[in-house]
Design a protein around this nucleic acid. Structure first.
Length: 596
DNA sequence: GCCGTTTTCGGCCCGACTGTTTTCAGTCG
């Protein structure tokens, strides 16, 4: 584990343990916020002094010295003390849905419960009922949540969750009385994984929407069903395409429905889209401007503490659209993907981030020659159908034997086939003869330089030895980036979401080298990969690094994954100028030729 | 513990739902 990852998990652990000791909640929050701030840093924080550390938003003198303590001594005294004080299994109890710090602390202090096994015992022997405010119904809920938590608590991949949410939205739109319906939450923000599905609806007939939502066939359990809010668990079909199911996909996903008046749809969409941190900042901003913001709208703040403004009939300053609310807060419209309290409130105008329609080429695709299911002509036709001006054929290189990697002889034969296809398809599209060349464990490439120079495009990717330590992995990738014939580094870390952590190279060094050698880094758009991930893209964009967004197509439907790559790109603040797939044909081809 | 275009002290977002209570605490997002 790299220093930053280690620091992140320790700060998070401090926050959790503090919470369980009943510490001041603002102090708890400060550690949790600092942990998040650390997560989005690409610089190795162990090399920074306190002055540079406190420049990071969310880190002050106290936590800066904690970071220095970890860097210098390898441990944090306060954390070690907390670990002695709080039983190790208690954090797992806190993770159970419906149990918060107050209850878990009571269980620990009064009943001596220190882990999930102890909780189960207290439920079985009834001793749990001696706690205050603890009745039969609550115990039933805890019991159900405990059973669920022991099965899985993994977040769902964006690509699995999105079709589920879209199906719900389509279904609810058909319910009588529905005006607007949309999904929100981390899915709308395009995060690579989502915790649950958030659906927002405006309607004249709330009961009918609640019924359609709670009583659908795939609903496994209804957790809450109120007039304006419902919560259910939905059965998931865990098909993950060419990566065989490993049985770890959660069997169900939580889905929340929020029903709002049509006049508040924009404010509600903002509230439900989040992120929580972004919303908190907006509300603070509203207060400073003499207003108060909630999911019903932006209201003048008349300091009444008895009732909410909407229930007293106060007229909203803005509520109908997100644009209106942002405008009244003195902000430009902020795209959902960057609502993370990561500098977006300092924007003075809406940035022109890359969009799906900007993409004019795919530079990473496979055919039946290696492990794809499309013939060469099928692949080309798919690319033409998408309106692309260029498609690169990049089957695997010889070391990827399990994926049918091409020997030099087969590579030459494929090029002959491509020449034929060029005659057949004529000016409709440019077909590039390329390869997805393995970056071997030592950073050398899987074909000789002579072959690499002869290809039209080289995407170099790591496929094996993905557990290397940071230093080795960094050296390995740097060697590939510096290679004179490499155009793009494919899925740079090799991670698979929820499956494999992949390499953890020093990203700032990787990005700096990519800029220096004019090598693009790929956002692999497949939802199992999304590699580069959002935080890496953001750092790359800030450094002026070129980015490729490719679908790594193996089958026709893989082209549809582009939207997930775009979401990741937008989360990284990518504009079309830095994305090679958004360039006009001539500009792209000239760029590729510089390394041939 | 963090933070400041009213502040270096005194704040720190806001509302819904549930289950337990006779008015609200805890949890969640």
């Amino acid at each position: 584990m790299g220093f930053n990852a280690d620091l992140h998990s320790r700060l998070d652990e401090i926050a959790t343990l503090l919470e369980l000791t009943g510490a001041n909640k603002f102090r708890v929050n400060a550690f949790a916020r600092a942990a998040r701030a650390v997560e989005s840093q690409t610089k190795d924080l162990s090399s920074l002094d306190e002055k540079d550390l406190i420049a990071i938003d969310g880190i002050g003198m106290g936590i800066a010295s904690v970071i220095r303590e970890l860097a210098d001594s390898g441990s944090i005294e306060e954390l070690e003390d907390l670990r002695k004080e709080v039983p190790a299994g208690l954090a797992n109890v806190l993770d159970i849905q419906g149990l918060g710090p107050k209850t878990v602390r009571l269980m620990w202090q009064d009943l001596g419960i220190t882990d999930r096994a102890g909780l189960k015992k207290a439920i079985d022997d009834g001793s749990i009922l001696t706690l205050p405010r603890m009745g039969e119904k609550t115990v039933e809920n805890i019991k159900a949540a405990l059973t669920f938590a022991s099965k899985s608590n993994e977040r769902l991949a964006l690509g699995i969750a999105t079709p589920i949410a879209e199906a719900i939205v389509e279904r609810l739109k058909k319910v009588k009385g529905v005006k607007q319906c949309a999904f929100a939450g981390s899915m709308r923000r395009g995060k690579d994984t989502i915790g649950d599905i958030d659906i927002l609806v405006s309607t004249t007939k709330p009961e009918e929407v609640a019924e359609a939502f709670c009583e659908a066939d795939d609903v496994e359990r209804v957790i809450a069903r109120g007039e304006s809010k419902c919560s259910v668990r939905i059965v998931v079909d865990g098909n993950s395409g060419r990566w065989k199911s490993d049985g770890k996909t959660p069997p169900t996903v939580g889905a929340d429905l929020k029903i709002v008046p049509d006049a508040s749809f924009g404010a509600a969409l903002m509230y439900f889209t989040g992120s929580k941190e972004h919303n908190v900042r907006l509300r603070e901003r509203a207060l400073k401007k003499g207003m108060t913001l909630n999911e019903y709208g932006l209201f003048p703040d008349d300091k009444s503490t008895t009732e909410s403004p909407q229930s007293r009939g106060v007229k909203a300053v803005a509520a109908k659209t997100e644009e209106a609310v942002y405008t009244k807060l003195g902000l430009p419209y902020i795209p959902p993907e960057i609502r993370e309290d990561a500098g977006e409130l300092d924007l003075v105008e809406t940035p022109g981030f890359i969009e799906l329609a900007d993409i004019k080429s795919d530079l990473h695709a496979h055919t039946t020659a290696s492990d794809g299911v499309m013939s060469l002509t099928e692949l080309i036709q798919c690319a033409i159908d998408r309106g692309f001006h260029t498609i690169a054929v990049t089957d695997h290189s010889k070391s990827s034997a399990q994926a049918g990697g091409l020997s030099v002889e087969r590579l030459r034969a494929q090029r002959d086939e491509i020449e034929e296809a060029r005659k057949h398809f004529g000016k409709k599209i440019t077909i590039l003869a390329g390869s997805e060349v393995d970056i071997l464990a030592d950073g050398s490439l899987d074909y000789d330089d002579e072959i690499l120079a002869w290809l039209d495009i080289v995407v170099a990717s790591p496929h094996a030895a993905l557990s290397q330590d940071t230093k080795t992995a960094t050296k390995r990738l740097l060697k590939a980036i510096e290679h004179p014939h490499v155009n793009i580094i494919g899925h740079p870390t090799g991670r698979l979401i929820n499956r494999r952590k992949g390499l953890e190279p020093a990203m700032d060094e990787i990005i700096a080298a990519a800029v220096e050698h004019d090598t693009a880094l790929e956002i692999n758009a497949h939802w199992m990969r999304l590699d580069l991930r959002d935080t890496h893209v953001r750092a790359a964009v800030e450094a002026g690094c070129k980015i490729a967004i490719d679908c790594d197509d193996h089958a026709p439907e893989d082209f549809d994954n582009l939207r997930f790559g775009i979401a990741t790109a937008r989360r990284g603040w990518l504009t079309p100028e830095l994305c090679v797939n958004a360039w006009a044909a001539k500009k792209l081809h000239n760029w590729l030729k510089k390394k041939r």
